[in-house]
Amino acid sequence: MDCIFCKIANKEIPARLVYEDDLVLAFEDLNPQAPVHVLVIPKKHISTSLEIDSTDNALIGIMFQAANKIAVDRNIAGKGFRMVMNCNRDAGQSVFHIHLHVLGGRLFTWPPG
């Protein structure tokens, strides 16, 4: 498999890590869309959210807990932040390994682009 996020998780290519535990890893987005833009990925390869099954429930919860910790650590929790997971190309997914975008540090509008 030639997945860039698997390579980051396996430390085969570098990334600016901001969080890691046994199941998930978080790193700075290379093309930030906000002053804070961090990606949280599971170390397990899951291509899209459509592939998440009941055996992944705890893993997905851990991803959100990591995102919350990052928001607190980056001082964006109090004012507000956005968490986004895109599914498939038309929604903007460009890397087919699920990832949670943690965005903050600026005012967001609704609906998103």
Rank of each mutant, 00 (worst) to 15 (best):
K44R: 10
K44V: 08
K44W: 03
H45M: 11
H45T: 01
I46S: 00
S47Y: 05
T48A: 05
S49H: 10
L50H: 11
L50A: 02
E51Q: 15
I52S: 09
I52L: 12
I52K: 09
S54T: 13
D56S: 05
N57F: 00
A58P: 00
A58G: 00
I60L: 13
G61A: 04
G61T: 09
I62Y: 00
M63C: 12
M63F: 09
M63Q: 05
Q65T: 07
Q65D: 09
A66G: 11
N68Q: 13
N68M: 02
N68S: 13
K69Q: 13
K69A: 13
K69V: 08
K69S: 14
K69N: 14
I70H: 04
I70G: 08
A71D: 10
A71W: 15
A71Q: 14
V72H: 15
D73E: 15
D73S: 15
D73R: 15
N75W: 15
K79N: 11
K79R: 13
K79A: 09
K79L: 04
G80R: 10
F81H: 08
F81M: 10
R82P: 11
R82T: 10
M83Q: 11
M83A: 12
M83E: 07
N86E: 13
C87T: 15
N88V: 03
D90T: 06
D90R: 09
A91F: 00
G92K: 07
S94I: 03
S94P: 15
V95A: 04
V95K: 14
V95R: 13
F96L: 12
H97R: 06
H97N: 00
H97L: 01
I98V: 11
H99K: 13
H99A: 06
H99Q: 10
H99E: 08
H99M: 08
H101T: 07
H101M: 12
V102T: 09
V102K: 07
V102D: 03
L103E: 03
L103A: 01
G104W: 01
G104I: 00
G105P: 06
G105Q: 07
